[in-house]
Amino acid sequence: IQGGAGFILPENNYLKKVKDHCTAVGAILILDEIQPGFGRTGKLFAFEHFNCVPDILVIGKGMASGLPVGAFTASKKIMHSLSDNPKMGHITTFGGNPVIAASSLATLNVLLNSSLIADTLKKEQLFKELLKHPKIKEVSCKGLMLALIMDSPETANELVLRAKDKNLILFWLLFENRAVRISPPLTISELEIREGCAIILALLNAM
C-alpha cells in the first residue's frame, strides 16, 4: 500500500506480478510495512491481502506500541548472507534493546490473541459509512489506514488545521496534497470514531 501517495492499494494482482518478475530475473523483493504492518489493515501484514510474500520485510512503528523500533525480516538464507563481508555487518548500536524487545513481544501477543486485527475492518466500514460529504471525493483505505481525498488541496489543508483546534489529530500525506490522513490506534472505539467523524463533517460544513 503506497503510504505518502494517498494510501493507494495495488490492483490487478500487481504485487504478485512484481514478485514473479523478481523471481524470474533473480532480484529480491523488499516490502516496507512500517506503516501498514502489525494489524492496521486487517491482517498482521498488508502483503497478506495481495497474494505476495516478499523476500525481505521492513517493519517498525506499531511493532512496539509506540516505543522506537525498526527491523527487517527475511529467510534464513538471506539473513545468513549478512554474517560475512564484514562480519556481523548488520548489527546496530542500539539493536536488541531488551525493553523494546519485550514491548514488541507483548504487542505481538496481544494482536494474535485478541480481536483487534479483525476489528479494524469493521471500523474501516464505519468510517466509510460516516464520512460522506460533497467535499470528500474518495476514502482510500484498508483497515485503519485511511486517506480522505478532498476536492482541493486547500480543503485538505484547512481541515487538518481546524481539526487540531477541536482536539482531533489528522495529518497530511507527502505526495498527495488533496489527502487527509486518518491513522488512529487499533484500540479506537466505535464512540470515538463517531465523535471524530462528526467533528470532520461539522468542519467541512463550516467551510
Results as ranks from 00 to 15, higher is better:
L130N: 11
L130T: 06
L131R: 07
L131I: 10
K132M: 04
K132L: 08
H133C: 08
H133A: 10
P134W: 04
P134L: 11
P134Y: 03
P134M: 06
I136D: 00
I136R: 04
K137I: 05
K137Q: 13
K137F: 00
E138T: 13
E138L: 15
E138N: 13
E138S: 14
V139M: 10
V139D: 01
V139Q: 07
S140F: 07
S140N: 12
C141R: 02
C141S: 12
C141N: 12
K142M: 13
K142N: 09
K142D: 00
K142W: 01
G143R: 01
G143F: 01
L144V: 05
L144T: 10
M145H: 04
L146K: 09
A147E: 00
A147H: 00
L148T: 02
L148K: 02
L148F: 03
L148Y: 00
L148I: 11
L148E: 00
I149W: 02
I149F: 04
M150G: 10
M150E: 02
M150N: 09
D151G: 13
D151A: 15
D151P: 07
S152C: 10
S152M: 08
S152I: 14
S152R: 11
S152G: 06
P153E: 06
P153W: 08
E154W: 07
E154G: 13
T155F: 08
T155P: 03
A156S: 12
N157P: 01
E158I: 15
E158N: 15
L159Q: 05
L159S: 11
L159N: 03
L159A: 09
V160N: 00
V160Y: 03
V160E: 00
V160A: 06
L161T: 14
R162T: 15
R162S: 15
A163L: 03
A163V: 03
A163W: 01
A163G: 03
A163T: 07
K164N: 10
K164I: 14
K164C: 08
D165W: 05
D165A: 14
D165P: 03
D165K: 15
D165V: 14
N167I: 07
N167F: 07
L168K: 07
I169K: 09
L170N: 01
L170K: 05
